[in-house]
Amino acid sequence: MAAVTQQPAPGSAGPVNLREPAGWRRTKNGLMTGLMWLAFLIVLVPLVLVLYTVVSKGAAAINWQFLSSPTIPPNIMPLGSGGMGPAVVGTLEITGFAALIAIPVGVLGAVYLNEYGGNGILAKVIAFMSDVMTGVPSIVMGLFIYTIWTLQFGYSGMGGSFALACLMLPVVIRSSYEMLRLVPNSLREGSYALGASKARVILTVVLPSAVGGIVSGALLAVARAAGETAPLLFTILTVEQTNSNLFSGANTALSTQIFANATSPYVGAEQRAWGAALTLIAITFILMIVARIVTARFTRYSH
């Protein structure tokens, strides 16, 4: 009885203590919160540093002439002559075509895995292979396309697109698959109960519900691919003049231009490399924003 009388009875006068008692739990909470903030700051450091370095060193190079002029071969030349025109066009063409191959195939593959494959052996094999493909180094993918495509048909932007598409495909499959898995089954059942066929359920309910995540995943893949250098070195070679024909003749891209300029000892080349790097980042950034706006229109009813 004594233990009971120490506490004020409920409803009796006197404030009730609802505060977290001081002690190890409180300390632990503070400690963990601090650690999370620290981790966040550590993650931020490289991001901010990369952006700062690229902008501060590359901004000087950026002007219309730089973005549009043909490349001038000897990179001895100081900044102000020649530019990245062919590389900008090449990057847009090659990455765009790669996305055109990898995104539809990847999304359809994910639809197969999640909606049709079930626990079948084919689905398991595809999922496993796709995961293995994620781990293939990009240079190996470049060599692969070099041997099966470039050696037969010569250098072309399309070869580069194939190599990039191979890199993007497993990323698109995996991210889309995870998004489709998150679509609640109750939505599928709701649609089936109205007499929708399976294809209709997928097209009108499942994919629209997952579109936000699918677009994010696809974009991540595109952004990664746009910066890939190794697979392009073997497949597109390099050119000085803009080659707007994706399907024949050597081409060039920002990433390979960065590589070529950055590995040469001249000041002008170094500045061009920074300028190209900034251009590449800007292109990716613009792409992200456009895709976000598009996705927001699709998902305006989802919350």
């Binding site: 109750s186 059942e189 709701g190 109960a193 309910v205 629209p208 519900s209 998902t299």
Partner: peptide, 17 residues
């Protein structure tokens, strides 16, 4: 299912208007 509809335990409106 077009002739025999179903209402579920948990309301499941589509994420649409």
């Amino acid at each position: 299912r077009r002739r025999i509809g179903m209402v579920f335990q948990k309301a499941n409106p589509f994420p649409k208007s």
